[in-house]
Amino acid sequence: MKFPYSEKVLEHFRNPRNVGQIENPDGKAVEGSPACGDMVAVYIKVDSKTQKIKDIKFESYGCASNIATGSIITELAKGKTLQEAKKINWKQASEALGGLPSIKVHCSVLAVEGLRAAIQDYEDRHGVVKKKEPTTEKVVRKRLRHVMNPLTGLDVVRTNLIKEINIEKGVVKIKVGLPPDHQFASNIKEEITEKIKPLWDVEEVNVLFVDESE
């Protein structure tokens, strides 16, 4: 009998490594959303002198490939410098797992994005970014690519839900093309706020819903 998953994937699925939370993490990120499917949380502790990842933990609300990828990236990232860890990509994670079925790519990409986002979070909080880039519409748009549109499972930018972005004196106004009483409205609002609020020069995030379909 043949499973679609490699032995290595099944082994990490059965016994995932580095599971759980880190109290007072130096960086953390949640990628995905329960509304559209899988979800991964990544927590890191960073040695401020060496810039190495001292400890890393993950949590998953997802399928076997999501859990296994979360597990393998913690192993790959542990002990690496932030610069090295940032470069870990999905292909490396997949290879380390002995391959993943192509239909499962999107579930496993989340874990890799989770690691990058946790590092980004660390850099945002600790001012590691060499020159602080002011938040522009482009920056906001890039971040919003990680917010999923639960109606389609694709991100809100690609699915044209973001109608307008306005940035003025630290206040970011985002217009979303959905009726305010839409079943996912509060979920999307929460996710957008979570992604934009941590930017260093953002004080306030206003998410407005405008129904343009009618």
Partner: peptide, 12 residues
């Protein structure tokens, strides 16, 4: 058992 195991690792 399975539920307990999976909830241990769930971020929700």
């Amino acid at each position: 058992e399975v539920t307990q195991k999976l909830r241990e690792i769930s971020p929700l």
